[in-house]
Amino acid sequence: MISSIFRALRLTIISLVFFSGVYTLVIYGAAQLAPGKGKGDTIVSNGHRYYTNIGQAFTSDGYFNSRPSAVGYNAAGSGGSNKGPTNAAYLAEVQARIDTFLVHNPGVGKADIPVELVTASGSGLDPDLTVKAATIQVKRIAMQRHISEAALNQLIRRYTAKPMLGPDRVNVLQLNLALDRLQPKL
């Protein structure tokens, strides 16, 4: 019995070295060959570095707003709302988001607000918008920035990723960076 325990302990140590150590180092080594060198994809703009895949809070009317986040886009504490579909407090929150959106986006009808723009994502860090969720904000941004709606729609088209499989999406950060290049922040 005792000798079995010792043998199990020795096997544990050597497997620990192998699976936690050697395997990790192999993948770490491979990471140095990957874009971003294992530190995640980044964009550098105006001397600032951003993570392409980590969504940011865009709340100002002059930017394409990102989706609601249960954790306020805290990239050191990801998570969803975990509110159930019949939870009254949750439904009131969605209703409040719809009302706020209508106030900030005059001229947009309620029936056109896409559901993804008033519901929080799973990670709280969703970097993307659907095409519709970006397009619905064009009128507001055009007014705020004095750019033509056509120019904004064209911008959205340019930054829409159309993968072979899976939904089309627009990276909000890339879109807003392009927006700032089109017309520097007021």
Partner: peptide, 24 residues
Amino acid sequence: NPLSAHMGIDMSKGAMEGKETRFG
């Protein structure tokens, strides 16, 4: 969510609470 649909918004993407845009 039918309860969100009652609010009169565009539900074409489905139940997006807790879901990510890139997966749908």
